[in-house]
Design a protein around this nucleic acid. Structure first.
Length: 205
DNA sequence: TACTAGATCGGCT
DNA sequence: GCCGATCTAGTAG
């Protein structure tokens, strides 16, 4: 908890902004988790995608509240974690006010601290090869494995001292690349994927 | 490097 | 029943 309180944690006001604003401004910030044994996991967010209830058929919230997506309507600053393809989890940051149904999917992270623990979570061992290190957190499913995030963490509050995001200098707009989103079939034309140019932990190509 | 298929299961039609 | 906001291992070139 000392760690959580000493860092410059993002506030409720940050998360209640518009989903596209939050998505862009999350780039460069540190996604942090404190394990029960005190291990501090953190990494720089380098790739995100925005999802929105309005005009976005790819969003889980598009058709309204269900048991599965109810966290998306709980208001900015919550963590929405869902199960996909029978074996993986994906982590999203909820944005906007209550009932917004908008979220930012974390797709790429550059590991900073707790790398040994992340390696053990993902590959069963630390002391990673270069190849393993480069594949540690460059994708949404990989991030959840490395941070050991699962259904249990669905709905957690990012204003807590166990899982949170700490502030950092904004990435200059010249270093932010905007493209369409990956891996979806609907609303594919929306340019709502943002990543840091030339960063090796961006997923895909 | 590039493409293909397989793993595996909860949510929704 | 069907299919997905994924990842890996395998094969071919």
């Amino acid at each position: 908890m000392a760690i959580g309180t000493s860092l410059n944690k993002l506030t409720k006001e940050f998360y209640t902004q518009d989903v596209l604003t939050v998505a862009k401004e999350l780039l460069g910030k540190s996604f942090c988790k404190v394990n029960e044994d005190g291990t501090f996991l953190s990494g720089k967010i380098v790739e995100v995608e925005a999802y929105n209830k309005i005009n976005d058929e790819a969003a889980h919230s598009f058709k309204g509240v269900t048991k599965r997506n109810e966290v998306m309507f709980m208001g900015g600053g919550h963590l929405y974690i869902y199960f996909i393809y029978g074996m993986y989890f994906c982590a999203n940051v909820i944005t906007g006010y209550q009932d917004s149904g908008s979220a930012v999917l974390i797709r790429g992270i550059e590991p900073l601290t707790g790398i040994d623990a992340m390696g053990t979570n993902r590959f069963g061992h630390s002391d990673l090869s270069k190849k393993e290190f480069n594949n540690l957190t460059n994708g949404p499913g990989k991030i959840c494995l490395a941070y050991n995030l699962s259904k249990n963490n669905n709905g957690e509050n990012l204003l807590s001292d166990r899982i949170f995001i700490s502030d950092a200098q904004n990435i200059s707009s010249q270093k932010i690349v905007v493209t369409t989103r990956i891996g979806i079939k609907k609303s594919v034309e929306l340019p709502w994927r943002f990543f840091i140019k030339d960063n090796p932990f961006v997923s895909g190509k």
